[in-house]
């Protein structure tokens, strides 16, 4: 017989995870609309791999397999990997990525709730370091024919017709390697990959993730701190530099609506296990990720920096938490405690 409290709110880890998956659906739908069904193949592939790996690891660790398999956390990791990897990546890239996330980043660190690093971002960072070219082949916007995409995933690969540089990649390459006269405005005007505010197609995917993020806020699964701090920091830093030198630094709408910014703001940065937990800590944590993301995007060798930024801030999370403990009831004010 248990002790008090004797009745509990109907809440579970499973329901939290399932609602996170639900919140990803609008973004996925837009993704499929603009870039084809390949991403669904990747999601299926990642999900099956994740569940098998999760089951195997639970069995090896002597944990109740069905109880943990049903918690949905492996599926969230799998979906985030499928959504951050190129949808036309070869199947084994996704499989190896998922295995590194579930086996190494999650279970070798103690399983659910114990991992110091965001598993999906560990997978992304590992794969982009190991296979930079495969991780940079993205489908062209509007080219939604399924068969060539299927071949890209399962072979034989014929990529020329269906790939296109991502907006971030295109801009970075143009600004870094082309002649010194290249300007942001010139580059953005010259290539088909750029849309009205961010990347063509990508800006609408980002909008889909934003809607999902609002749902997560409404469901109180995440708090406002991290998305707000992340987006605000990215906005302020990119605006500041774009005002300072608009020929070399791209403006805020581009940063917010390309790459993984929206997905990151609501679904990746907000991972509770590997992030900060105190209100002030969450603000610092997410702002740090945004700042590092901007630095890596602008000066680094990789097109998007969110994965590295998240992993770097994961390391700092315990220290930030320790130094941002909120005041406890009765410890807030010196003196008579009147408001």
């Amino acid at each position: 017989m248990n002790n008090s409290p004797y009745f509990l709110k109907p809440a579970s880890v499973q329901s939290v995870m399932l609602r996170v998956l639900l919140a990803l659906l609008p973004g996925i739908a837009v993704y499929v609309w603009f870039f084809g069904a390949a991403v669904l193949v990747q999601i299926a592939l990642a999900s099956v791999t994740a569940l098998l790996a999760e089951a195997a690891m639970l069995k090896l660790r002597g944990k109740p397999v069905m109880m943990f398999l049903g918690d949905g956390s492996a599926l969230v990791t799998a979906w985030l990997i499928a959504l951050t990897f190129p949808p036309i990546a070869p199947w084994w890239l996704t499989v190896v990525g998922v295995l590194s996330a579930i086996v190494v980043a999650k279970h070798l660190y103690g399983g659910l709730g114990q991992n110091p690093f965001n598993p999906a971002m560990v997978a992304f960072a590992l794969m982009i370091v190991a296979y930079p070219s495969l991780m940079s082949q993205w489908p062209a916007v509007g080219f939604t024919d399924f068969l060539p995409q299927w071949h890209a995933i399962f072979g034989p690969r014929q990529l020329d017709a269906i790939t296109m540089a991502t907006p971030l990649d295109a801009l970075r390459t143009a600004l870094h390697t082309a002649d010194a006269r290249a300007t942001v405005a010139g580059v953005l005007g010259s290539q088909a990959t750029f849309g009205n505010i961010g990347g063509k197609g990508w800006e609408w995917v980002a909008a889909g993730y934003f809607i999902g993020g609002i749902y997560l806020l409404q469901q109180r699964i995440i708090t406002w701190h991290m998305p707000a701090a992340f987006l605000a920091t990215l906005l302020v830093v990119s605006s500041g530099f774009a005002l300072f030198d608009p020929t070399r630094f791209v403006g805020p709408s581009f940063h917010l609506f390309t790459g993984g910014a929206m997905l990151g703001a609501f679904f990746i940065v907000t991972d509770p296990v590997s992030g900060c937990t105190t209100p002030r800590g969450k603000l610092i944590f997410a702002a740090g990720i945004a700042l590092l993301t901007w630095i890596i995007r602008t000066f680094g060798a990789y097109p998007d920096g969110i994965a590295f930024a998240v992993l770097l801030m994961n390391i700092a999370a315990p220290l930030i938490d320790m130094n941002t403990q909120p005041p406890v009831f009765g410890h807030k004010r010196k003196g008579d405690g009147r408001p």
């Binding site: 248990n2 509990l8 579970s12 880890v13 939290v16 109740p64 109880m67 943990f68 918690d71 956390s73 399983g111 659910l112 709730g113 114990q114 699964i221 708090t223 509770p272 296990v273 937990t277």
Partner: peptide, 11 residues
Amino acid sequence: PPPEMPCIRCG
């Protein structure tokens, strides 16, 4: 109560 799961630090 259903079986205890690990803490996910959801806050």
